[in-house]
Design a protein around this nucleic acid. Sequence first.
DNA 1: TTTTGTTCTGGAAATCATTCTCAGAATGGA
DNA 2: TCCATTCTGAGAATGATTTCCAGAACAAAA
Lengths: 144, 144
Amino acid sequence: MRDDLHATATRRLRRVSQRYTSGRRVLVEVLAAAEHPLTIPEIVELDASLATSSVYRNLAALEQAGIATKIVTSQEHARYELSEDFGHHHHHLVCIDCGRVSDFTLPAGVEQELDAALRRAARKEGYVHDTHRLDLTGTCPECQ
Amino acid sequence: MRDDLHATATRRLRRVSQRYTSGRRVLVEVLAAAEHPLTIPEIVELDASLATSSVYRNLAALEQAGIATKIVTSQEHARYELSEDFGHHHHHLVCIDCGRVSDFTLPAGVEQELDAALRRAARKEGYVHDTHRLDLTGTCPECQ
DNA sequence: TTTTGTTCTGGAAATCATTCTCAGAATGGA
DNA sequence: TCCATTCTGAGAATGATTTCCAGAACAAAA
Ligand SMILES: [Zn+2]
Ligand SMILES: [Zn+2]
Ligand SMILES: [Zn+2]
Ligand SMILES: [Zn+2]
């Protein structure tokens, strides 16, 4: 499981001529252990061996290699999580007040129907479809 | 139509103790005339009478009053459009390359089913549901 | 219409997340 | 080992957005 993750990471980085260094490995471990998307300050705080500028650079590398995904919200910091194909397709519940992000999934039938409708919409506008992002905004239990 | 827009804007700003000044009126006109969400540099270029710092301040005021909506993407600049209740509920197709944003809508049935599923998901996580944002990413015709 | 207290304006300065720089370190192959 | 490439991290630079603040516009009352 974890080995597979690292093996895949190595392969995907190689594909874009990049190395799977120890700093990047730590990043992947931290993201894999998190149960919700993390901001860069959070990541640096979780592992003090990481230098902020390197974290920025390396998360960009991981994103480019298809290992991590950047989530941009209205909050001040972007958030990162492991790419969906290391877990499962899911969506985000974003708290309007504190910025907390929780994951959730849609019933398979709904997701399927949605995906089909989105493909149709993209084609109609002449876009080459890539993926979709569905965020739900609301107020989290703690902020109510 | 247009009058109604301004009347509603006035009312909503009043509700938060703000005035519907000429600068804000120009902003609303520009947004109403645009057929896709605009960045602040685009807005300032469309009407040279607008001062950048005031546009930032006033778009924040319009957003707080529920007149405009801010759309944040991975692009450098945020984009703004009139609030959905001045038009119709819709979603965004974002070009990965150039950042262009087009609007699209889902078939009513899909949208309805999606909305019901989202409400259920929010409740399950203990969130008070607000709204959802659904973006489709892809490559626009010009960037292909 | 004056007066008065509030909100707004816009240019410039400040903030701050993110990106860039660059000299040295690590890496991987020849 | 040697060479070429990639990586690192501390600090500088960048650039979108926010904040300041002194004067203007405004609304309501007098
Ligand atoms: Zn919250
Ligand atoms: Zn989905
Ligand atoms: Zn494009
Ligand atoms: Zn919708």
